[in-house]
Every structure is written in structure tokens, then in C-alpha cells.
Write a protein that binds this DNA or RNA. Sequence first.
DNA 1: CGCCTATTTGATCTGATTCAAACAATGTGG
DNA 2: CCACATTGTTTGAATCAGATCAAATAGGCG
Lengths: 248, 248
Amino acid sequence: MNICAPQHSLAPLVHRLACIFDLSEAEKEAALALPADVRKIKAGQDLVREGDRPSRSCLILDGFVCRYAITGDGKRQILAFHTRGDIPDLQSLHLKVMDHSLAALEPSTVAFLAHEDLRRLITQHPRIGDAFWRDTLIDAAVFREWMIGIGRRSAHGRIAHLLCELFVRLMTVGMAEGTSFRWPITQAEVGDALGLSNVHVNRVLQDMRADGLISLAGGLLTIHDWPRLKELGEFNATYLHIRHAMPI
Amino acid sequence: MNICAPQHSLAPLVHRLACIFDLSEAEKEAALALPADVRKIKAGQDLVREGDRPSRSCLILDGFVCRYAITGDGKRQILAFHTRGDIPDLQSLHLKVMDHSLAALEPSTVAFLAHEDLRRLITQHPRIGDAFWRDTLIDAAVFREWMIGIGRRSAHGRIAHLLCELFVRLMTVGMAEGTSFRWPITQAEVGDALGLSNVHVNRVLQDMRADGLISLAGGLLTIHDWPRLKELGEFNATYLHIRHAMPI
DNA sequence: CGCCTATTTGATCTGATTCAAACAATGTGG
DNA sequence: CCACATTGTTTGAATCAGATCAAATAGGCG
């Protein structure tokens, strides 16, 4: 039984997996046939919370979500941004207790996939299991890259790197138009992601605009000078482990 | 064919997996029977380098190793510390190109496990595959926790957290005696791991000694006030996802 | 012993934070 | 369709945690 409305197929999942793993047609069909409970999520709403023991994982069909943790003194660290095709809490399939939370940054569409069904799919199609494993490994690679940024790069470098990463990832899922993409992330959220204050994020973004690197207005971000932005952020897409060469 | 010398059984691997996953006796035996090429590694030597496409992974039998990356301007970011029972580059089973390097921090003993053999083991014993997957997910959870530290905690908090984490992890593999454990990590390495300068690490460690939290001399670190150190580092071991409750 | 590496100390500097307040945009209900 | 509330952005000034630079000790080891 697939309770997913027809206009909300799991195509984004298959598209994402195909970006990182070579799936057969039979495997793609099996993935598409996963039962899914599709829901609209309001901005700011938590999908999963630290301490939860979820019995299903969230596939993002549309929108933006983030994973975050709150420190003892109430500061928020955003751990990752996710969008179409991502399953940010796929890990809960093997780690029972959530060690961080998941929230929507804007109104989003999410398909909930029961662990039970995912396990059955993996058993019947071990290569889909490999693809999922690979996906979680790439997730970890992104964490490592952010660690390098937060630990060793300047504020300008960190922000440039984040912009580059999001651009490449959004492009692979068809959410970029040319070098522009929707930007529903506030400056405070960028700060919480990169270990910076919102004030400083603001100043750096203004520098970048003044330098002609980017423009950002009305929720749309445009990259005007990709080579220079890439250099500033020391961005190299290898760690995203995308199978096909980027057109940029 | 097991070319591993008898005194170097793969017991640390089974012990580690048993810490995080419930394995049957048959599965444990199968893991122990993995062919392994055991080598002594000199301090400072790289085991794997960024850009490599390894055909085997490294199981640490004894010693300390770290994963690290070098930024464009030559700074080093240490991404993780690993010791007995860890397979720091298990990910290379599914991610062909290494996006960071792996080096020994002190003379270490390492068993190289061919991907081919690992894959065969996983196919024959899918639950061992699940255990490995779980291990890589915990690896990612550790990265996330470090991100929180680097992004949002003070230098004192970060260092306290690192000490707590290493203590718990070393304890689970029998490398701690009471609240003491061997500490072959230089202050510069701590700095590279936590995004701090060696000078500042030194000052913080001195504060901690003066406060009676720890002592550190002759490569031995002793925790004198676990509750206070834990509080200072906001340490909560949940993210390590260890199956059995800690005796502390 | 002498070399090399690690730790320690002091002085100075700076990127980024914090605090505070103005300003712009966006949405909501009457 | 406007008034108001809310949330996000921008600006300025003061401050600070931690970096950097430089040089002195202290270990460890062949």
C-alpha cells in the first residue's frame, strides 16, 4: 500500500541514489514502490528530536531542513542542511536514539519511510543497502569537511565554502537555475552552522556582495564569480563523492 | 590463509563490534578468521593519504592514529583519533577516493584487511555488515559532536570534552587503568584537532591541572575529578552509542 | 652529551563577539 | 488595503578569547 499521493512520487530518492550509486532499473522500481507517508511540514517545526527513538526516517521531497543540537548554555549548532532527495535521519535505522534534532527551515514536503519497510527493501535488494550505506558515508564526509572549515578556515572561507557546497548539491537535484538558487536560510542560521555570530555573517556577506562574488536578495542567491568563490572557500567537490562530473 | 601472527589475533575487532552490536558466536568466529596483514607502523607515518584509492582498510590493533586533512594554507585539521579495535578508513569500502589522510601518532600495530575479504564476510554474514554500518554511523556521530565543540564551545569546554571522550573510548577497549590512560598526543595535535593554537592548549591544560581536574605527565593522563570534567565539557556519552552502561 | 622535539612563558595583536539600537521586510488580522 | 507585530537585516562601538610572534626551558633518545 502506497499512501503517497501520485504527485509526490519518491523519484527524488531514486534520483539522489543514482547520483552516488549505479542502480539497476529493477532496483529503482523497488525503491519507488516503498510505502511512504507524505506530509507538509511548517517552517520551524521539528521532524525528530534529540532523544527520540524513531521507527521511521524522513525523505525530503521539497523544502529545506537542518539537523541541529543545542548546547548546555542554549547555543544552537546546526550540523547540516538538507534538501530534496536527502534522508537526514537514515542513521536512525541503525542508531536507535537520536543524538540531535531535525527541523524544517521553510515549509517542506517530507515522506516518512518506515524502518521496517526500508529493512525489507535492503534485504531484498542488497545493492540498495550498499547505496544507503554509501549515502551515510558521504554524510559523514560532509561533516568532516565542515569540521575543517569551522576549525581552520576564516569566516570568509567558511561562508564561501558553504555557498559552494549548497550550490553543487542543489544543482544535482535540479534546484538551481544557472548559478542562482533559492536561499531560505537566515544569517543567524548560517552563523549557527559555521560557529559565527549573526552580526559577523552579515558583515562577511556584505563584503562578498561588495566584491561582486554573489548577490543575495529576496530569498534568491546568485553566484557571480564562481572561480573566485571556489578559491576563497578552498572548495573541492571530491568529498561529495558524486559519480558524474559537474558541468562547472 | 591467515598471515597474521598468532599473538596478533583480530580479537580487538570482535571486542569493538561486540561493544556496539549483538553478534552471535558464529559471527564472531567468522570475523576472527578474516585474513589480515599485520604490520608495525612508525610514529608519524601515513597509513593512507588523501587521494588514495585503497583496496584494503586498517584495523588498529595497538597504538594511536589520527585522521587529518591539510588546508590550502598548510594548516592541519585533525578529524578524529583512533585506537585499538577501530577501523578508521572502513569507509573506503564504499567511497573509492580518500578525502583525508590517516597517520600514526605513536608506534602502532595495524592489521590491513582486504576489501575483497571484508565484502565476502559481509555477504556471508549480513549482520556483520550491519555492525560495520553501525560503526561508520557512530563515527559520523563523533564528528557531529566535535563540530558542536569546535563551533560552539569554549577552549576549556572543547578540551574537557575531548578528554572525556577519549577516556570512555579507551576504557571500553581496556586501555585505561582506573581513571588514567596513556596520552601520546602532543599539545599541538590537540590544537589541530580542536581548532586551537598549541599555545592556548598549553594554557588551558595548565588551568585544568591547577584546578585539580587532571594531571598529565610522562605521557600519562589521569582524571582526578570526573564529575567536574564532564560538566566542563558538557559530556554525555550517548552519542558514542555503546550498548552497555558505563561503570562511571 | 648533544640534538630534536615538546612544553612553557611573556607580550602583543586581531578577528570575531557582544551589546544595543535602527531599519527593512514579511506576514496577519481587522 | 492599511496598521501592527514579528522576524530578519544592518550599523556602530566596546570588548575579549584566543592567535601570533618570539624566546626560554625541559624532556627524550640515539
